[in-house]
Simulated scan of single mutants.
Amino acid sequence: MTASAAPSAPSTPFRVAAVQTVTGTSLDANLARADALIAEAVRGGAELVLLPEYFCMMGRQETDKVAIREQDGDGPVQRFLADAARRHRVWLVGGTLPLHCGDEGRVYNTSLAFDPRGERVARYDKIHLFGFTRGTESYDESRTILAGTEPVAFEAPCGRVAMSVCYDLRFPELYRHLAAGGGTSLILMPAAFTYTTGQAHWEILLRARAIENQCYVLAAAQGGKHENGRRTWGHTMLVDPWGEVLGVLPEGEGVVAGVIDPARLAEVRQNLPALRHRVL
């Protein structure tokens, strides 16, 4: 479902949770940890759970994700997500997993959303691919990932939910596009920000996206030192439409939870009607 669908008008609070992991190199172990953390979130009352980018694998080489890529519609990770959503009776957004893209050396970095019946309701292929070089630290996702082209949102009980992944956070025009026609209630941000870039920009960008779109932002991060030697920033958090951080987990495995409150959304948008004042 793309952003063209008309948003609903939620009237009751909706509890969400973001999972933080320190994903390793074993697919089976990673899925087991994700399931345990989903269960923890659901025990806390979560109705929607967001997993981080690369929750299923952070390999020793960038090409390791290509080796576990799945065909769209079936595979161990997709079955895990559908089953977990159904078993826990929760809206579940699976961070990202590698899907076939038609290029033998690359994959789509794909985020999938499932409803509480385990039915897939949305697929988003990460559009913006991270590139960074400073000294000995260097990343170029385009070597193993093919960029997506289609912005995606879906409807949940809390209203319109905008999908995005990691480096997308630096491109505000994506979220403006998704907010067209009535606004977004919630932006999802599964990520694996590096320690360097996360320390500098993560919270600032999350709060900016919440403030300028007058919506909640739920960010699920990788957070710690990984088996492959990489260190990620963490700081999984929930930000409200005024830019206030409602909960944060600096590092390590865990869950950050909170409420998407339609009354708070309405209050912020009424007090400061910036969305209605847009010219361009």
Rank of each mutant, 00 (worst) to 15 (best):
G135T: 12
N109Y: 04
Y175S: 03
A113M: 10
R134T: 13
R123K: 11
E155C: 13
S111D: 01
L146V: 15
L112C: 09
V90M: 05
D74P: 08
V152I: 13
A122F: 05
T110I: 09
L146S: 14
P116K: 03
H177N: 13
A122N: 04
F171A: 12
A156S: 06
Q71E: 14
R106A: 15
V93N: 00
D115F: 00
P157Y: 00
G148C: 07
L129E: 03
Y108F: 14
I68G: 00
D140C: 08
G105R: 15
P157Q: 02
L129H: 03
E137D: 15
T144L: 07
F80D: 00
G102N: 02
K65Y: 01
Y139T: 10
G95W: 00
S142N: 14
R106M: 10
R160H: 03
T110Y: 02
G159R: 03
F130H: 13
R143N: 11
E137R: 13
Q78E: 07
R143C: 07
R69N: 05
R176F: 10
L92P: 01
L112F: 08
R123I: 06
D125P: 03
R69K: 14
D103Q: 15
P116S: 11
T110H: 02
P116Q: 09
E150I: 11
V77L: 01
K65L: 08
V66F: 07
A147L: 08
D103W: 09
I145V: 14
I68V: 15
E141C: 12
N109W: 08
L92Y: 02
A84L: 05
R106N: 04
V161N: 01
L146P: 01
V66P: 03
M163E: 01
D72F: 15
Y175I: 06
F171H: 15
R69M: 06
V165Y: 00
A84Y: 03
F171W: 14
E173M: 12
G75R: 03
G73S: 05
L169D: 12
F80H: 04
E70Y: 05
H128D: 09
D83W: 08
D72E: 14
L174A: 11
V90W: 01
R123F: 03
G105I: 13
G135C: 05
Q78D: 03
E70W: 05
G75H: 02
W91L: 04
R69W: 02
S138H: 13
D72A: 15
D72Q: 15
V161Y: 00
D140E: 09
R123V: 10
R170P: 09
A82N: 04
A122V: 07
H177Y: 14
D140Y: 09
A84W: 04
R170F: 15
K126D: 11
H88D: 07
R176A: 13
